[in-house]
């Protein structure tokens, strides 16, 4: 099996070299996220940075490894749609939580010891 030096081969399919480049990028992001976790910018910013890096890594896996790049566009629509639907779950759950306990942790009744 020969290794192409281009990122794509005959039918616009990602080559082995292309896959290895994506792997390299994923490794860099993994090390980056660990290193950044040792710096503390504040609770929310830390979480945003970590999630942004994770989302980037996931996007690389989805677009290249899962062949969304070479798939019919409807597949890309389903992927985006799934995360859209997931965001509805998050949005309504957090909105409900904020409405009931928006005054901070002290407004949550701690009935149980844990």
């Amino acid at each position: 099996m020969s290794i192409n030096t281009r990122l794509t081969d005959d039918h616009n399919h990602t080559s082995v070299f292309g896959y290895l480049c994506v792997f390299g990028a994923l490794m860099i992001f993994t090390v980056l996220t660990v290193l950044l976790s040792f710096l503390n910018f504040g609770l929310i910013i830390d979480a945003v940075i970590a999630l942004a890096i994770a989302a980037t890594k996931a996007s690389l896996v989805i677009y290249f490894f899962m062949h969304v790049r070479e798939s019919p566009k409807i597949i890309a629509l389903i992927v985006v749609g799934s995360f859209l639907w997931l965001s509805i779950l998050f949005l309504f759950t957090i909105a409900d939580f904020q409405a009931m306990y928006g005054d901070g942790p002290t407004s949550v009744p701690h009935a149980l010891p844990w």
Partner: peptide, 9 residues
């Protein structure tokens, strides 16, 4: 991908 999110979280 699930693990990619689980690890930082």
């Amino acid at each position: 991908i699930v693990w990619i999110f689980l690890f930082p979280l």
